[in-house]
Amino acid sequence: MEDPNAQQQGAAFPAPPYYYQRYAQPNLTLLEKAKSDPTNPDLAVALDALPFPILALEPPPPIKRGICWMFGRPWPVQDSLATLAEQGIEQLYPKGEIDRVKELKKLNHSAIFNFLDLVHVLATSPGEFATKVEHIRVILINMHHILNEYRPHQARETLRLMMNDQLDRKRKETAALRRTCEDLRKKLAGLRALEQDRLAIPAGATASENNNTDNTNNSQDVEMVPAAPMVSTREAGAGADGTTALGGSALSTAADRNAEAMSRMMQLCDMIE
């Protein structure tokens, strides 16, 4: 049986257990082979050469009840507050429902009185100080036990405050998103109005200006090239018509893309809200 005292359980920062060197890669490989094929005769020689059983490398099952040892002190597996009677300490306050604030004040007064009495004992009979120190220790343990009974209430209140903080933060973030979406809607509505105005009014003016320019160019071509006036006029007219048609198609495509992008952004704002 392994000596638990060799693990320095009482140290604040204990050294690693001495058996950590067993977990070398060759031993772990043997463990895997022993688990997969325990009847292999070639494996028995390697297992017999080990100074410990190979299955000792398997972690123990978790403890579900009873106590466990941590830093040399027993701790219950099921986390619960042990009573003073279970700890072997005298209970100085009444059992059952009590006014904890009132009892804590009483114990505090008792601790101060016993401390003053301890000072008097040290001045008159120093050999009797152990009794007074024990009284003070019992009083402080009782006060500590009453405070520990507040831990579940403290945990619930702390959780409630954390949830309220998270809720307030999410509400502020939601309000900020809604304000951003509302501003985005207003800007998109303004851009849509500008787009409609640009497509409705300037398009006709641009077309008329293009026609006037084409007619001027055609007349100049006729005067400059009298030998073939019909060809120049037709080519200029075809060029003007082609340019006008191409420009209208490009404007229509751009308008459709802008309208589609605006619609998508509106849908995104609706999804965010």
Rank of each mutant, 00 (worst) to 15 (best):
M1A: 13
M1Q: 11
E2I: 10
D3S: 09
Q8Y: 14
Q8D: 15
Q8V: 09
Q9W: 08
P14A: 04
A15Y: 09
P16D: 11
Y19D: 15
Y20E: 14
Y23V: 02
Q25E: 14
L31K: 01
K35E: 08
N40Y: 01
L43N: 01
D48K: 14
A49I: 10
A56F: 07
A56Y: 09
L57W: 01
E58F: 01
P60G: 04
I63N: 05
K64A: 09
G66P: 04
I67G: 00
I67F: 15
M70S: 09
P74C: 01
P76Q: 06
V77Y: 03
V77F: 03
Q78F: 04
D79L: 07
L81P: 11
A85T: 08
Q91L: 06
Y93W: 08
P94S: 05
R100P: 10
V101N: 12
K102C: 08
K102P: 03
L107P: 04
H109M: 09
S110R: 10
I112G: 00
F115G: 07
L118C: 00
L118R: 00
L122R: 04
E128P: 00
V133R: 11
M143L: 02
H144T: 14
H145F: 11
E149M: 12
Y150D: 15
P152E: 11
P152M: 05
M162K: 13
M163T: 07
M163A: 15
N164K: 10
Q166W: 06
D168V: 10
K170C: 06
E173D: 06
A175Q: 15
A175G: 01
R178F: 06
E182Q: 09
E182P: 00
R185F: 10
K186F: 09
A189D: 15
Q196C: 02
D197Q: 11
A200K: 01
P202I: 06
A203Q: 14
T206F: 06
A207M: 07
E209G: 03
E209D: 13
N211P: 00
T213R: 07
T213W: 10
D214M: 02
N215G: 03
N217I: 15
S219L: 12
S219C: 02
E223F: 01
E223R: 00
V225C: 03
V231A: 02
A236H: 04
G239H: 05
D241E: 11
T243Q: 02
G247P: 00
G248W: 04
S249R: 12
S249W: 07
A250G: 05
L251E: 09
S252I: 04
T253L: 12
R257G: 12
R257F: 12
N258I: 14
N258K: 04
M262K: 04
M262P: 00
S263V: 06
M265I: 12
M266S: 07
Q267E: 15
